[in-house]
Nucleic acid binder design. Sequence first.
DNA 1: TATAAGTTTGCGGACCACGCAAAGTTTTGG
DNA 2: CCAAAACTTTGCGTGGTCCGCAAACTTATA
Lengths: 235, 235
Amino acid sequence: MSSEVDDLTIDEHAGLSLRERKRLVAREALSAAALRLAMDKGLENVRVEDIAAEVGVSARTFNNYFSSKEEAICAITIRRNARIGDFLLKRPADEPIWTATINAVVEHYSDIGEPTREFVRRFRMLVSNEALRGEFLKAHGEVERRLAIAVAQRTGTDATSDLGPLLLAGAIASAIRVAMIHWLHHDLVKPMGECVRAALTELADGLPSLTARNQSSLEAKPVSDVHRNHDDEDE
Amino acid sequence: MSSEVDDLTIDEHAGLSLRERKRLVAREALSAAALRLAMDKGLENVRVEDIAAEVGVSARTFNNYFSSKEEAICAITIRRNARIGDFLLKRPADEPIWTATINAVVEHYSDIGEPTREFVRRFRMLVSNEALRGEFLKAHGEVERRLAIAVAQRTGTDATSDLGPLLLAGAIASAIRVAMIHWLHHDLVKPMGECVRAALTELADGLPSLTARNQSSLEAKPVSDVHRNHDDEDE
DNA sequence: TATAAGTTTGCGGACCACGCAAAGTTTTGG
DNA sequence: CCAAAACTTTGCGTGGTCCGCAAACTTATA
């Protein structure tokens, strides 16, 4: 019916066998159908069977790809955010790691653009679902894991034995999560990208808003080069 | 049979009606039974019915308290970590917020002591379960939420409208999670408390291990007063 | 002590995850 | 081009989960 699925899919379909391509397409179609149906009717009113039917496969097949409808929905988040690691690896080598990571995240968010109001309205409904919030956290854990690998690669450390990459990725992922929830709850006073950027720099600077009167070693001087350092934003 | 359940339960049963006390006791008994059975037989070999039977209630009653066995198990983590916020509020008022928070966490972990090897062995088995890891993340989210409230209270900010408390709580909770997983995977080379402390200070100092050659504003001077600042540890 | 408020439980229904084996599709290598 | 190998899809069956409902029971209120 529609091919909106691939809007953001910068050909991942290179050098894959027919089988693998079919598999990828089916997986994405199921994810997309799950999200669409859940946004329309509310997650609790969507059965696995419905999602499968929408794509034209059996319910059993759905379960060969995902082990729950929640997982199918959150797979989209994972796919989307996987790019942050790639962006990080492409940042100039002389950027400090915090700056580079933050810029990679901001780059990613300005790249995907602002969601429509309608999308946000439905999305808000969606995340009010308990089971889904849990699965979102799981998805975010996966994003974090991948980011940690990219950080390790860039810093020449090891994502399994060193704590550094995991700590940075965890802090960043957590800040993204906080920023997005905050943004969702506070009626879009400013663009999402701004919100994420603000949260990340606040964190990188050691939470100056919390260290008002007490001196803290962390407030020394802010990571100022994060702010205006790429040009694709209006004002 | 045993009353190990309340080993760490510093009387939460104050000023509660009989009904409420009964409810609490039942809840904790179910949690504890769930954890014990899962550690013994493996989570997939434990049915809700088994847990209920262990406590002497119907399976239906189990579901009045928890909506899954995973949730029952993770409720213990939530209960345990809820104390971190209390510790934070009791820290001296002149400690900077990062320091105070880290000290609160370290205090908590030195307070609960090192787990036995046997416990760790079983626990490791337990977290290899996919579904349970998801629920753990959910539980950690709850812990984070509560910590954020305590941070807001201490700093005179607002946990719903300000980002600061959420960001700090998120970063700390994430570091705790990373430290624990790392510790579980690396065969207890040092005590868990040490591991958590190390991760937190590393993070608070801006990840110096990752900013080796590039200058970063965050490496200014370390938050040194975190290290040896309470006395209940050997060595 | 009567009435209200809350809890436990069996029952039943909708749904879900997954093992298995039969039928279908793609790949591989003669 | 064909046949065997590798993999995917599907129906079916099983064991299990979650939850609404209403009846029995327990605790609270006045």
